[in-house]
Simulated scan of single mutants.
Amino acid sequence: MRTQNKLHLSWVLGISLLFLFNGCKKGTDPLPADENELITTVTLRFTPVGTTNTQTATYQNKSGGATPTKFDAITLTANTSYSLTVDLLDESKTPTVSVTNEISTQKEEHLFLYAADPTALLTYTYGDKDSRNLPVGLIGTARTGVAGTGKLNVRLRHQPPVNGTIVKDGTAAPGSDDVNLSFTLTVK
């Protein structure tokens, strides 16, 4: 009888261990969430096409508080095409980290959106695409229209895969904001 109990106990332990090890296979646990980028500084560089006269507008919030330490206005010339590039930094780390480089290597997960209000002030054309031919927005062309004052909203959407499925589709809908800033825009 004791031998039968030991045999039964061995079977129970063996089956329990089998379930335990099968439940802990690598690759079956959900992947950790791909967190948003920490961005303390956004610099927009506007260079009139055919020149080297770059104008910059910077948003900076090193402290992470509600009030930025720097938030420049943008002043551009009417009816002019500008090469527009954006630089992003995380200055909370030492040394400072270029988030631009990270986004450049993760293009399939990021999308910049540029929207002027009123829309007649400026239009934006993407100059870069990801491997699926979807826009990114690290570089592009900004074309000013009529003179006036308004806002230029700059958004960086973070659109990582969800449960292994790619969600970036070229629109703002999927994902969340890494950056959402409204610069004062004057076109004269």
Rank of each mutant, 00 (worst) to 15 (best):
M1R: 08
R2I: 13
T3E: 13
K6Y: 14
L7M: 13
L7T: 14
H8W: 09
H8F: 12
L9T: 10
I15A: 15
I15P: 02
S16Q: 08
S16W: 11
L17N: 07
F21K: 01
G23D: 03
G23Q: 09
C24T: 15
C24F: 15
K26H: 15
D29Y: 13
L31Q: 14
P32R: 03
A33Q: 14
D34N: 13
L38A: 08
L38S: 08
T40R: 05
R45F: 07
R45D: 01
V49A: 09
T51D: 02
T51C: 06
N53F: 08
A57D: 09
T58N: 08
Y59C: 01
Q60W: 03
N61T: 00
G64K: 01
A66K: 13
T67C: 00
K70V: 10
D72E: 06
A73L: 01
I74F: 09
T80C: 09
S81W: 05
D90L: 07
T96L: 04
V97S: 05
S98N: 14
S98D: 14
N101H: 08
S104C: 00
S104V: 02
Q106A: 14
Q106S: 11
E108V: 11
E108M: 12
E108S: 13
E109D: 11
H110L: 00
A115H: 08
D117V: 11
P118K: 05
A120M: 13
A120F: 14
T123W: 10
T123N: 14
Y124P: 06
T125R: 05
Y126W: 03
Y126P: 02
L134W: 05
L134N: 05
P135S: 04
G140F: 10
A142H: 01
V146C: 01
A147F: 12
G148Y: 06
G148L: 09
K151T: 13
N153W: 11
V154P: 04
V154L: 08
R155H: 02
L156I: 03
H158Q: 05
P160G: 02
G164S: 03
G170Y: 06
T171L: 03
A173V: 15
P174A: 01
P174I: 01
S176R: 15
L181C: 04
S182F: 09
S182Q: 14
F183A: 01
T184H: 11
T184R: 10
L185W: 05
L185V: 04
